[in-house]
Amino acid sequence: MSDKEPLFSAKNRKLLTNPLGSDNPITVQVLGICSALAVTAKLEPAVVLTISVTAVLALANVIISLLRHTIPSRIRIIVQLVVIAALVILVDQVLKAFAYDVSKQLSVFVGLIITNCIIMGRLEAFALGNRPWPAFLDGIGNAAGYGIILVIVAFFRELLGSGTLYGFQVIPQAVYDMGYENNGLMILPPMALVVVGIIIWVQRSKDKSLIESN
């Protein structure tokens, strides 16, 4: 502990807020796209997965950050993977024992957290070179940035694809009687890509600094 800096200094706050906007893992870093496509047909799995990813990413960041001086650089990717996989299995086992209903909803998605490139990406790019507290904030921030896109995409896909939100019917029967139909295409993965594309488009037209120069 050399120079004491406040827990929520401007630099640390940036770690939390940047991933929500100008450094978003999905729309700017283009990481974790695969799970964004897979789990966003409904809001509920999107929310639960966000929570699980937050837990795993924050903990993995802290653990790797604590170990950062001891990890042999030649096997650092393997060490990172082992830490992530162990955490994911722990989360899965604990959910199965104490929150069985939630674990049933998540089913395969818990396992999918291991393959989420955001986690590996943050461990490699941030946790290996920073102290535990900033690494923790970075984990929370990036998981939130990931989650916010997941929730936005899931919101539109569930609303337009199933006429429900979080499982509750929101489009009234009267609208269906007038000839409205749910858009079946919205529940298929390609539409997630289109929705993510639209979000990226909107974000870049608002923030010109994100546009590549070539």
């Binding site: 042999p72 650089s73 030649r74 096997i75 060490v79 722990l90």
Partner: peptide
């Protein structure tokens, strides 16, 4: 931390610890 011996030891110890933690949790739960 880049010597072969250290790398091998590190990997083995890490695997042992992780295996112990996971099997303990699995048995308990």
């Amino acid at each position: 931390t880049n010597s072969n011996t250290y790398t091998f030891l590190y990997a083995s110890v890490m695997v042992l610890i992780v295996a112990a933690v996971l099997s303990f949790t699995a048995l308990q739960l």
